[in-house]
């Protein structure tokens, strides 16, 4: 069903059929559930040690909900996930505390994800309050300085407040906080999308450097396909709560087989005016349907130019169909899009 199974020794994270539905309630006094937002609806993937798995998709595809479930911030509706071979969704008490050290997150908006009343030193050092075993009290100030240095900030700025920093610097603070507990996995939820182009490159390079220095594994969630290609070893493409195609960075970008992946790639404007009018362009009609009431069968069929009757009746499984990597399309066919 998915790409592995034989040797799970190098997998730090294994996610199987993960589902997260949010109830939709109406009424003021007597709240009734009238439906569910199927934010994540059966997602499976593996994350290998030291690798980056990119997760791409448009707004509402469930990529941020996936991050929250992986962080154990939201309980899943069903499905399983193991961290280093142990069931991470059932963990409690001391075991869960340990898990929280091992999986950290970097959030999208560096303006709202840092407490404006705390100094940078307090923000980066706060994880040590909760997990004192990582750094004994006396050594904390030194650790915080080291962390600021690692992410390219001046360690002397320890006593400043977040508003005294630019967007890119704040994102570095967020990264330092995520690194504090020496995690094994970092979930990056749109870490560069709020940043200007010239700053984005600095933060992306930093994430790359930290990965090789500390042997981190990343789940890198983003909507920008160029950014994802740059940092990812493997890529999962999501649409309406499901992974529609998964493969290595090269398989997804050079040999995409799912029509949605192809449309997504062709919609990205390429910064080269010479290619204007010479690229093949697939234009999708309309908007993404509501996740409360997704289309029957294949969820992409309402916007797909290949759709046949079978697409409405039968949901295509995510399996190897063409070009040697899994794709959830009845008519999967390799087509090269990127010039």
């Amino acid at each position: 069903m998915h790409e592995t199974g034989e040797n799970s020794g190098d997998n730090i994270l294994e996610v199987r059929d993960l589902v997260k539905h949010f109830p939709v309630r109406v009424g003021v006094l007597f709240k009734r559930v009238i439906g569910h937002v199927r934010a994540v609806d059966g997602v499976s993937f593996d994350l290998k040690r030291g690798e980056t798995l990119g997760v791409v998709g448009e707004s509402g595809c469930g990529k941020s909900t996936l991050a929250q479930v992986l962080m154990r911030l939201e309980p899943p509706t069903s499905g399983s996930a193991t961290f280093e071979g142990r069931d991470m969704l059932a963990m409690k008490g001391a075991e869960l505390r340990k898990l929280r050290r091992d999986i950290q997150i970097v959030l999208q908006d560096p303006y709202t994800s840092l407490n404006p009343r705390m100094t940078v030193g307090d923000i980066v050092g706060e994880p040590f309050e909760i997990h004192p075993e990582v750094a004994p009290k006396g050594s904390r100030a030194g650790r915080v300085r080291d962390l600021l240095d690692v992410v390219g900030l001046n360690p002397e700025h320890l006593n400043r407040y977040p508003h005294q920093f630019s967007g890119g610097q704040r994102q570095r603070i967020g990264i330092a906080r995520a690194l504090a507990l020496k995690p094994k996995v970092i979930v990056c939820d749109e870490p560069v999308s709020a940043l200007d182009v010239s700053i984005q490159a600095q933060v992306m390079n930093l994430l790359g450097d930290l990965q090789s220095e500390f042997g981190l594994s990343y789940v890198f969630i983003a909507h920008d396909l160029s950014v994802v290609r740059h940092l990812s070893d493997r890529v999962a493409v999501m649409y309406l709560g499901k992974v529609v195609e998964i493969g290595t960075e090269e398989e997804i970008y050079e040999r995409p087989t799912h029509p949605y992946t192809q449309a997504l790639l062709s919609a990205v404007p390429v910064p080269d005016p010479e290619l204007r009018g010479r690229r093949q362009v697939i234009r999708l009609e309309g908007d993404v349907p509501s996740p409360v009431d997704p289309p029957s069968g294949c969820r992409f069929r309402t916007r797909c130019w290949k759709a046949q009757d079978v697409c409405a009746e039968e949901e295509p499984a995510l399996e190897i169909r063409a070009a040697n990597h899994p794709s959830a399309c009845h008519f999967a066919e390799q087509r090269s899009i990127v010039p």
């Binding site: 984005q200 490159a201 920008d224 160029s226 950014v227 740059h230 960075e249 990127v338 010039p339």
Partner: peptide, 9 residues
Amino acid sequence: SLPRLDQKG
């Protein structure tokens, strides 16, 4: 400084 869709940088 742009990451490119058409090349793995």
